[in-house]
């Protein structure tokens, strides 16, 4: 499968995109170094996508590797007219959603829950005072609270900085579907955020009560 004509028309500036296309075509013809360059260039976005989709670094690492391996075996299906970033992110997000679907049947152990999820040990503070670590943990938690399809568009919008057109390309839908999905995703995440905040307030009250009782008993 040889490319038709030169990759970049003569006189055209070689852009990052055309460079990536050239790598992808070389890789599909068996050039391992070209594929390694693509992995190098895309490990960060793919790993971050997987981390936010799946919620843990261990799973993200595995998912990122799996994504690249899938990409390698499907290189012959890559359409050079499409952005390479969209193609690889599409493989990554499909893989993550498949993985989440498979996970749904399994039960998560309590131990996993304790390590994967952030448990508040302090009373909530106003948002602007929130420590970076807490904010990070809150983001991870609320992302896991919403449906994978919502999580996916939010990650693509906020982490990958994708346009509506890119998101449509990656998720295999229309731009208008992306708009409404993003709208519903924001609302769902907002609701999850409100629930988390209410929970934290409740827990803080309980702690105060327990703490108060302990003090009054002389501990």
């Amino acid at each position: 499968m040889k490319p038709k004509g030169p990759l970049t028309p003569i006189g055209d500036q070689p852009t990052v995109e055309s460079q990536e296309r050239a790598w992808a075509i070389a890789a599909s013809q068996g050039d391992e170094d070209a594929f390694a360059k693509l992995v190098e260039a895309y490990q960060r976005p793919v790993y971050n996508l997987a981390y936010r989709m799946l919620g843990s670094t261990g799973e993200a690492e595995d998912a990122a590797q799996e994504t690249f391996l899938r990409a390698f075996t499907r290189l012959h299906t890559y359409d050079p007219g499409r952005k390479f970033s969209s193609w690889i992110l599409s493989i990554g997000s499909h893989y993550c959603i498949d993985r989440l679907r498979r996970r749904r049947g399994k039960t998560v152990s309590m131990e996993e829950l304790m390590t994967e999820r952030w448990l508040p040990d302090e009373a909530p503070k106003p948002e602007q005072q929130m420590l970076e670590g807490e904010r990070e943990a809150l983001i991870q938690n609320v992302l896991q609270d919403v449906a994978p399809q919502y999580r996916e568009v939010l990650i693509l919008r906020y982490w990958q900085d994708c346009s509506y057109e890119d998101i449509a390309d990656i998720t295999d839908t229309s731009v208008s579907a992306v708009k409404s999905r993003l709208h519903r995703a924001r609302n769902a995440l907002g609701e999850a955020l409100e629930m988390r905040e209410a929970e934290q307030t409740e827990q803080a009250h309980q702690r105060r009560r327990v703490h108060g009782n302990a003090l009054s008993r002389g501990f």
Binding site: N48, E61, Y158, W159, L189
Partner: peptide, 11 residues
């Protein structure tokens, strides 16, 4: 506010 310019993780 929560999601704008979020932290990224290093692979």
């Amino acid at each position: 506010a929560l999601l704008t310019s979020p932290r990224t993780v290093e692979p």
